[in-house]
């Protein structure tokens, strides 16, 4: 549990703006720092040929297609509890350099995007676009605790409770 919290908080809060643009370890089983070039693709489009404009403009899960044909699903970004679609949507069908953690888990491989830049020599930026867009959409509120302040989440928890079952409440 202690380890969990340190992973969550390190990612979201403790890394200052001076941190170098290189992947950092999060202490997850099977993780390995990885930096590679790949084309940003809409995964559903890549698999089935169902391809909306602009890779779905943030409404589709995006993947990284390497030159050898390997498709890597971008599951996570640098923001706490958030994915990478907002970080990658601006690079639809373009090549980027992705930097982050490849997690080799027997259940399935995962990739956490930490930094990205247009290949080969764009400007690095941290993969925290979800938080930036959340702030903008929520009156400039800081995104560090976005999950506590998000109106969609507040509504869902008010309706069904923390356990998802109306009327089932945590013991005091």
């Amino acid at each position: 549990m202690k380890r969990t919290l340190s992973i969550l908080f390190t990612a979201a809060f403790l890394i200052g703006p001076g941190a170098s643009q290189a992947a950092e370890e999060w202490g997850i089983d099977g993780e390995k720092k990885a930096r590679f070039e790949a084309k940003v693709v809409d995964v559903l489009c890549e698999l089935t040929g169902d391809c909306p404009a602009d890779c779905g403009s943030g409404k589709r899960q995006l993947g990284l297609l390497k030159d050898d044909g390997t498709l890597i699903l971008a599951v996570k970004n640098f923001d706490i509890f958030a994915g990478a679609a907002d970080d990658l949507k601006g690079f639809c069908n373009k090549r980027i350099v992705a930097d982050g953690l490849l997690i080799n888990n027997p259940k399935m491989p995962l990739f956490a995007l930490q930094y990205k830049k247009l290949a080969p020599d764009g400007k690095w930026s941290r993969a925290n676009q979800f938080g930036k867009e959340w702030s903008k959409a929520n009156g400039g509120k800081k995104a560090g605790q976005w999950f506590k302040n998000d109106p969609r989440i507040k509504k869902a928890i008010a309706e069904k409770g923390v356990f998802g079952i109306p009327g089932l409440k945590p013991k005091k």
Binding site: V75, F81, A82, F130, A156
Partner: peptide
């Protein structure tokens, strides 16, 4: 609750 956070955060 955390699964709702993550889904709204855009994790698959």
């Amino acid at each position: 609750q955390c699964a709702v956070w993550c889904a709204i955060g855009g994790i698959p």
